[in-house]
Amino acid sequence: MKWYILKRVLWTFVAMWIALTLTFGLISASPNPGQMRATMSCAAVGENPQECREQFRERNNLDQPVTERYKNYMVNMVTLNWGWSESRSQYVIPAILDAWRFTAQYAIPVLVISTLVGYGLGLYSAYKPYTVTDYTASFVGFFGISIPNFWFALVLIILLGTRVELVPTYYQSGIPIQQGWLSLANLRQLILPVTVLLTASLAWQMRYSRAQALEQMNAEFVKVAKAKGASQYRLMIWHVLRMAAVPLSTSFVGSLLAIFWSGSVIIEQIFAIPGLGLMTYTAIVEQDTPLVLATTLVTVFLAIFGNLLEDIAYVILDPRIDYGNR
């Protein structure tokens, strides 16, 4: 098991290296939007675009040979020298450090609530399949996975924000700084973002857990446990949930991150929350290549790290796994 985990950790580094190389390759192969922007802004103020282009290339070391650039790129990345963000007039790393808290403040509660409630509902509807409760839960599930989160956010703003002015329709980043992260005013302005993100993630968690639990419910050992005299609660928690946790662990981080990434970009753009999502959005709009790169890499690294956690959880949860084979 130790060897297995060590191998997975090593693999994590390989995956990160692949990710870095890939992004380098993509950027080198692309027409480089940052350069185009620089050239265009030169032309706009009447300077010689050709010269500006040269300047830009020199400033960004684009005139060096590819191997040299690749080497520098890798060294910079590893030493956390991720470059300068033109649009924020700030180094990229501090920018990320500024932003992550604004994302975490709603993402972590959503993660916890959606897992607890989603698994609870999923397990309960698997326990009573094809009853009214199950159908209601399955309808809620379909609703949650189908409703476009950006549209849902706008509808909530129209209904609750602009009509009755029940909740703030956009986020004021001053509030958590002045009144504290847990202040009532901050929590109030998080109601809509949390609702929107929660709807989707809860629905997915519920559907996954219901499907896995239903699969386990038909297993022979559940019948054996029933024949032992186990109570329904014991059957569902001790046997079904514990067993369903094995397949669920393999998709947990991946599926949630997928919802969270697209969700956070959209939600932060709509509610103006200055977190990682909004940073990604503005970086693209402002064609700030180092920042685009940084936000992409942060998400990719998080995904790789999450995958490592999944793999470790998997071997802890499933004693059957053959280490030699993986």
Binding site: A219, E220, F221, H239, M243, V246
Partner: peptide
């Protein structure tokens, strides 16, 4: 084969 819960 499947009568025992594999995780306990």
């Amino acid at each position: 084969q499947n009568g025992l819960n594999p995780v306990y």
